[in-house]
Design a protein around this nucleic acid. Structure first.
Length: 559
RNA sequence: GCCCCUGUAGUUCAACGGAUAGAACGCCAGCCUUCUAAGCUGGACAUAGAGGUCCGAUUCCUCUCGGGGGCACCA
């Protein structure tokens, strides 16, 4: 049950019948939670929004809505507050009756058909396979993974994709770097130029290289050898990235899309033909340009260089053309690093040109700064001084890393304090949340023994608690149940605004409410299991698990 | 110079334009004969500055000051 959507629907219906003049107008019905912990939970400020439309005071409107809306299930009352809010009070009995429903739905609790099966693609990380995955990529990776999970929960058909840039100069440089190191290992004196990649991973690739057909005297044929081994080295790098992301970081992907394949399939050419036929191209200074400026970009962009080589932007247009036209996605979400933000304008302009404007959402994930001893750790690919994502996760732990990255709003800069993460990983809120889950598991284990000892009744059997049970709900029980009911709303919210950082905060709130319940209410008391409270902790366990699963964080049974 | 992001407790972060600005860490004071004290309870501490829009601004707009990033016929 998504109370928020339910309330929205009811209010909309009421308003449209009471004020016919609003029928054809768009107005917002805002539902939110008052900040206090009193019993009343829902606030609607529809009255304020409506005031200019129907030319009445917000208070008057609120009062009329209150009279007309009647008694809604789930709510025990409506109250009008200054300056025109409607407060809906949740019914305690109704609250208690929600528990069995959660227990029935289990991991499906929170899922909905909000997305109506629309096809959505989330493309994330997509880092060049020429160097290690860095910490900033990780932020995008965890975020993309969680967002895809949430979209799935909300009823979208989601595809997760990594775009592999396996074309271009950098692939050659990668191969050359490895080759030079290889030859150096063979004892050949060969220089290692600035433009080559630094770092351990080059050494590792070189150590695995074996070139029986190219003896030491082939140094002068560097370019030839380089091109021969290019593909192999690239595959190795891609393999490393896949292993790291999928196995170690548990980031799921459905597809690894090769940039090269766009050239091989002729789609790049087809896009050029299309743009040409629509007269969006022109030639200048020997290069071919796309008129992106007419579509909101700062200036026009080169698609084919004067030397005849295509530019990355061109294949990227073909790539998105492929997403929309060939694969029919209703919506594509690209998650990019902050260093790509200058690229947004031309991309969105290109989308307008190929007729898919408004379907592409580009999320810019801001940079991650690593801080140690109060000093920023400068990240440099060239010098090889960066700390890779893998090293970070090794030091901090995957759960803590995921949770920490997800906690931050993706478009704010974040500092990752290495010392703090290493030294105080136990203070990471993720343990607070996991601890709540472990405590629940522990109680359930004990309760199961008690219940099974007494009777043969099935534990998962769900029944409605007697109505007299709900009257004596303790405040901490009420608060906890209300928190559980927010989960379906949260899923829908995040599916709409992509604010994945609400997940860890919700998890913390839920854990807090559970810990509070735990200290105040006993589930097992005097050797007897309180049935309603047993339902509460089972439901809490389900929601915690669902929420942690969305974040890709483990829910340990004991700690 | 132009563009984007950003400025909230000592620190790292929250807060669809709404009610008393929330957490965590750190600090101070308490709580274990009962389901895991990785917990709970209480206390101190914050919207960079100046204007504007609004019934109402941390949120939107303008300017100032700070921090980060981007401005290729690179990817």
């Amino acid at each position: 049950m998504n109370l928020k959507l339910y309330l929205q629907k009811k209010l909309e219906k009421t308003i449209k019948t009471v004020w016919p003049e609003t029928a054809d107008k768009n107005f917002e019905i805002e539902i939110n939670y008052p900040p206090d912990i009193k019993f009343g939970e829902y606030t609607s400020n529809v009255a304020l929004k409506l005031a200019p439309l129907v030319r009445q005071s917000a208070i008057e409107i609120a009062n009329q809505i209150k009279d007309k809306i009647g008694k809604l299930p789930a709510f025990s009352g409506v109250e009008v507050v200054q300056p025109g809010f409607l407060n809906f009070y949740l019914d305690k009995k109704w609250l208690a009756r929600q528990l069995p429903l959660i227990l029935m739905e289990k991991e499906k609790y929170g899922r909905s058909d909000f997305g109506r099966g629309k096809k959505v693609q989330v493309e994330f990380v997509s880092a060049n396979p020429t160097g290690p995955i860095h910490v900033g990529n990780g932020r995008g990776g965890f975020m993309g993974d969680a967002l895809a999970n949430i979209l799935q929960y909300a009823g979208y058909r989601v595809q997760r994709e990594y775009y592999v840039n396996d074309v271009g100069k950098q692939v050659g440089i990668l191969a050359e770097s490895v080759l030079r190191r290889y030859w150096q290992h063979q004892g050949i004196k060969i220089e290692y130029p600035e433009y080559c990649y630094q770092g351990k991973y080059i050494e590792e690739l070189a150590a695995k290289l074996f070139l029986p057909n190219y003896k030491l005297n082939h140094v002068h044929k560097l370019e030839e050898v380089r091109d021969k081994i290019k593909g192999r080295i690239l595959q190795k790098m891609i393999g490393n990235v896949k292993r790291l992301l999928e196995k170690k970081l548990k980031i799921k992907y459905d597809r690894w899309f090769s940039e090269k394949s766009l050239y091989n399939s002729g789609e790049v050419d087809r896009v050029i033909q299309f743009l040409k036929s629509q007269h969006w191209l022109y030639k200048s200074e020997g290069a071919i340009w796309l008129k992106t400026k007419e579509f909101g970009d700062d200036k026009d962009r080169v698609l084919i260089k004067a030397d005849g080589e295509p530019v990355y932007f061109l294949s990227d247009i073909a790539y998105h053309w492929n997403k929309f036209t060939k694969r029919g996605f209703d919506k594509v979400i690209d998650i990019w690093g902050a260093d790509h933000h200058g690229y947004m304008g031309r991309m969105q302009a290109a989308m307008k040109i190929i007729g898919h404007s408004g379907k592409l959402d580009i999320l810019i994930v801001q940079l991650v700064r690593l801080v140690s001893r109060g000093q920023e750790v400068r990240m440099s690919k060239r010098s090889g001084t960066f700390i890779t994502l893998e090293e970070l996760v090794d030091q901090v732990g995957l759960d803590a890393a995921r949770f920490f990255f997800l906690m931050h709003d993706f478009n704010t800069h974040m500092d990752f304090d290495l010392d703090l993460a290493k030294k105080k990983s136990k203070d990471n809120p993720v343990f607070y949340v996991q601890y709540a889950h472990a405590r629940i598991c522990s109680i359930i284990k004990k309760a199961k023994i008690l219940i099974q000892g007494k009777s043969k009744k099935k534990l998962h059997k769900v029944k409605l608690p007697p109505s007299n049970q709900s009257a004596d709900l303790e405040p901490s029980e009420v608060i906890l149940i209300k928190e559980l009911l927010k989960w379906p709303e949260l899923v829908v919210d995040i599916a709409g605004n992509y604010q994945v950082n609400k997940l860890p905060f919700y998890a913390i709130d839920l854990a807090t409410n559970f810990h509070d319940f735990y200290t105040k209410c006993r589930v097992i008391d005097g050797g007897k299991v309180n049935e309603r409270r047993y339902q509460i902790i089972q439901a809490s366990q389900i929601v915690l698990q669902n929420c942690l699963a969305a974040m890709g964080v483990d829910a340990p049974e004991r700690m």
